[in-house]
Amino acid sequence: MTDQAYNFAYLDEDTKRMIRRAILKGVAIPGYQVPFASREMPMPYGWGTGGVQVTAACLTPEDTLKVIDQGADDTTNAVSIRRFFQRTADVAVTEHTRDATLIQTRHRIPEEPLTEDQIMVFQVPIPEPLRFLEPRETETRKMHELSDYGLMHVKLYEDIAKNGHIATAYDYPVMVEEHYVMSPSPIPRFDNPKLDRSPALMLFGAGREQRIYALPPYTKVRSLDFEDHPFEASKADHACDLCGAEDSYLDEVIVDDAGGRMFVCSDTDHCAGRRAAGHVGRLGAGTEDVK
């Protein structure tokens, strides 16, 4: 049921027009951060106000929405945003990646390959990949203009000099179409290869920082690296303890006071789907834990 006191998808039409123009320019200039007049939303910054505004501007009544938080459909952030759009836009919702036409995500890309008919909306806390290296917006803007990313390479080099490898595990910077360096949002670097030439359109919204950017389908996205230290998508060296998957991104969960731990798929839909199909991991015996 829609809350009739609100406009369709919450935002007023003037705001949607402004966001829609920003999204179109973002799509036309892949990886470039388009400034937009981010609105206050009925949730705090850090809870996905940018993603919610992009989703609100894109939703149609025919969409099927999926919302994930770190891969999970059932965490507070995901549940509250999903309910928000059920109430204000009356859209269908799903937890299944393949049934969704629009997926809003905080910090993961689903394991199941995306299709041309899907749009991913990422929640972005800090859209500027250079921000912690150079705090001045005037300077980072000039660096993007000139495609001058020496500073970022120095940072990655220092990682190697200190740790022997590039220690950035999430929000790993990418080069888009050999012009703009872009923050992929804090997805694990395990997910970075999924950005490259993805058949799905990817939109990024940063509410507090007032930026929207985009990757059109089939855009070339390269994770920054060095010839002698090539980029590696990494994950915990385990199989999922519930479904046994060896190729999915895993969360480590502490299960007792004695240092016991288990590894489970971060993508809950992927894990539940595998368990429903009969896959069983180390601790997943029995079916009582299957939704």
Partner: peptide, 13 residues
Amino acid sequence: TPREAARAFRAAL
């Protein structure tokens, strides 16, 4: 307007 503009924008996008 809200619904028709939403559909039109998705087509444009």
